[in-house]
Structures are given as structure tokens and as C-alpha cells.
Computed example of a mutant assay.
Amino acid sequence: MDYNDEALIRRIHQEVADYYDEELELELEDRDPGLIQRVLDGDIGGPGDNSNLNGDDVERAERHRYFRELFRLQGELVKLQSWVVETGHKVVILFEGRDAAGKGGVIKRITQRLNPRVCRVAALPAPNDRERTQWYFQRYVSHLPAAGEMVLFDRSWYNRAGVERVMGFCTDEQYEEFFRSVPEFERMLVRSGIQVIKYWFSITDDEQHLRFLSRIHDPLKQWKLSPMDLESRRRWEEYTRAKEVMLERTHIDEAPWWVVQAVDKKRARLNCIHHLLQQMPYVEPQQQSVLLPERERHADYVRHPVPGNMIVPEIY
């Protein structure tokens, strides 16, 4: 497939704009505040309602509609968090997919407003020499939730069905034993009171190619490309076959797979969070009013000045 320089540059600019949207949230310097308010009020920006807007305005309207819905869903996640703590619910959420499929982006949006003591991320590195001699699931068990906790696995025990299989890091016997064990392992988790939710993020061949190119040309994202990622690009078809086998052999009633269409990253985030919220029967707990206590003041208290050599220079 061929991409001319102009198309590639345009795509990189889109990726950079998306990146800054992620970091700046709604702190956007728009020349038409009235347009933003109309979008936020729902007066424009709905399906088929962009006919009177130019290209930049349409894009701006889409961005604000995305943020409006993202903030609404994140508010629901805060309610879900309170319900998890109050009920002692335990949940494990697995995020799987090809490299650059957008798993990290949705994990970031889920955890962004939540208490890291309640909702935490487990992103395990490659096993060390000792871990390779353990029971395969052993190193994952220590990250499982206690009561009132949510754990998000950024890749999980399904590494064995994907990267380990494709790259030859496990034997055929270990691969088959994984498929014999994993349904029972997950059923055991469910029987013990841990809810297991599994997401596969699906992107096309062309989309992964473009995302890899954008990372190569973006110095802020080059760190995301490892030699293993580049090799996975070459072995696209092998990963496809491995994924198909994995979904077929590990889609069980107690812990089914859910496939997120992830070519459009922003839609994928919203759809995944919306679906996640539907998986638990949470209700908004009653919140007690918070009263700020009066600050105590003592006549004998004297605040000592901080030595000048300890102050961070105010460059900005």
C-alpha cells in the first residue's frame, strides 16, 4: 500500500491533535464560543446537522460532542466506583488487541477520574527467569482484586495465546495446556466472586499500518514502538490466526469475549466505557454532605520562612 507524503503528514497531524485533546481535555482555544455552546446545548452537531458548518467547524463540533459524552460517561464511572466500594464487588477487566489498537487510550479514560486505590492497572512486563518456571497463571494471581477493587489488565494471561504463540516463546504443549486451563481458571475466578470482563480491540491492517507510521514520525510516541511491535506488523496474518483460535476456544458463558471496533479511537473509547457500565448493576450511592471544618488558629504559632536555596526557580 502506498501513502503519499501529504496524506501521511495529514494523518500525523490528526494523531497529534488527538494526543493534545487527550491532555488538554476541553481547554481548547476556539474562535467561536457561540458554536461551542450550541454544540454543548445539543442545538447542532447531531447526525446530519453539520450541513451549514465548514470543515473546521464540523471537526470542532465532533470533538466537543466527544468530550461532552466522555465526561458524562466518566461521571458514571465515578458512581460505579462508589458502588464497587460500598458493595465489595470485585472485577477484572482484560484489554487485548493488536499493537496500536487503542487499549491504553481507553484504559486511561476509564481510570482518569477514579481513585487508583480502587481502580488500578496491571501491565506486566515479560516474565523473568524465575517466573518462567512458575505455574503460568501464578504471576497474574497476585494482581487480582480484593473486595471493593477493580483491576484493569493491559494485556493479560492471553499473551500465551497471542504473542507467545506467534513469536515461538512457548511450546505446542504449553499452548494446548493454556487452552485446557484458562476456561477453568476463569470459571474459578467467577465462582470465587470475581467478575471477569474481556475486551478485544479490533483494527484493520491499513489502520495499524498508519498508526505505526505516525508513531515512527512522532518523537513523542516513538517510545511506544518496540522491536516486538515491528515484528508483529510483519506477522499480521499469523496474529490474525492466533486471535481467531483464541476467541473460539476461550469464549465461555462465565467470561465471554466482547469485540470493540477500534478503527475510530474516540468512538471505541466511548463504546467500550458505555458497554462496561452496562455489565454491572451499579446504582448511585447516597452521598453524605461534606462540611469543611474551621481551621484552628493558635496565637503562639509562627510560620518559619523556607531557605531560598530550597525554592524551585520560577522560570515560567
Rank of each mutant, 00 (worst) to 15 (best):
G104M: 08
V106P: 12
V106K: 02
I107W: 13
T111I: 04
Q112S: 10
L114D: 05
P116D: 06
P116T: 05
P116G: 01
V118R: 14
V118S: 11
R120L: 10
R120G: 09
R120D: 09
V121S: 08
V121P: 09
V121M: 08
A122T: 12
L124E: 12
L124M: 14
P125R: 11
P127V: 00
R132C: 00
Q134D: 11
W135E: 03
F137V: 01
Q138M: 08
R139K: 05
Y140R: 00
Y140F: 10
V141W: 05
V141R: 03
S142M: 08
H143Y: 06
L144F: 01
A146H: 15
A147G: 14
E149L: 05
V151W: 04
F153V: 03
S156T: 09
S156M: 04
W157F: 09
N159E: 11
R160N: 05
A161F: 08
G162F: 01
E164M: 12
E164N: 09
E164P: 14
E164S: 10
V166Y: 15
M167E: 13
G168E: 01
G168R: 02
C170H: 14
C170Y: 13
C170P: 14
T171F: 12
D172A: 12
D172F: 01
D172P: 06
E173A: 15
Q174V: 00
E176I: 00
E176D: 09
E177D: 11
F179D: 04
F179S: 02
F179Q: 08
R180T: 01
S181H: 03
